[in-house]
Computed example of a mutant assay.
Amino acid sequence: MHSLIRIVVVSMALLPCFAMADSAEQEVTRLEDAWRTARIHGDTAFLERVYARDLEIGTMDGNAVPRDQDIALFASGDIKPKFIDHGPLRIQVSGDTAVVSGVDHLGGTYKGHYGEMSIRFTNVWLRHAGQWQLIASQNTRVQEKPH
């Protein structure tokens, strides 16, 4: 009987930890969706808020775009996504850090040239003072498989 009571007490003590993880996962999921929407609409104010000061975005060609340069591309209209659709997201939360990976299918223009592609991405979010910020992002183009 004491073992059963102990299991119930321990389970109840751990329940808030699981709820916090679910809550953080839900927050990060909403942020991922809001980030895509902000990029489609050129919402640079949103990007300014969620991009960490030292963020660099790893590009498909092996380069890294600094935070302010990425924001400037959206502000200038050089990048105009028409859509950014993601498949299932894999979200791993550990304390105040979340790692999100998945595949996006996107389409739009870059300096006036239209294109569509799929990219595999990994985003790292850090919660600081109650706010999540994107601290790292890496993208790799998914090669089309031959038919």
Rank of each mutant, 00 (worst) to 15 (best):
G95V: 05
R6M: 10
N63F: 02
L106H: 10
G115W: 05
Q143L: 13
A75Y: 00
L14A: 14
G58N: 11
R39F: 03
M60E: 12
A34C: 07
T37H: 11
R6I: 10
R53K: 14
E144D: 15
T140Y: 02
E32R: 03
F74R: 05
D68Y: 03
D68T: 08
T122Y: 00
D68W: 01
S11Y: 01
G58I: 06
R120M: 09
R39P: 00
V10I: 15
A98V: 00
M117V: 02
R67D: 10
I135K: 08
V93Q: 08
H113G: 09
V10N: 10
A98M: 02
D43V: 08
R67A: 09
E48F: 03
A45T: 15
F18S: 12
D85H: 08
S76Y: 06
V100G: 03
V10R: 11
L55G: 01
G58L: 07
K145C: 01
T122D: 03
V28Q: 06
L47N: 02
E48P: 08
Q131W: 01
A72T: 05
D70M: 10
V93M: 07
D54Y: 04
A129I: 02
V65H: 00
S11K: 01
Q92Y: 01
W132F: 08
V65P: 00
V142R: 09
V124F: 03
Y51M: 03
G95H: 05
G102A: 07
Q131T: 12
G115V: 01
A13N: 09
M12G: 15
P146Y: 02
A129K: 14
D70A: 15
S11Q: 03
V65D: 03
F74K: 01
I79E: 05
D43I: 04
V8E: 11
L47I: 07
T109I: 04
D70H: 09
S118K: 13
W125M: 08
V28C: 11
M1H: 08
S94E: 14
E32C: 05
I5P: 01
E116F: 01
G58R: 07
A129F: 02
Q143M: 12
A34Q: 13
A136T: 04
Q69P: 00
P16D: 11
K145A: 14
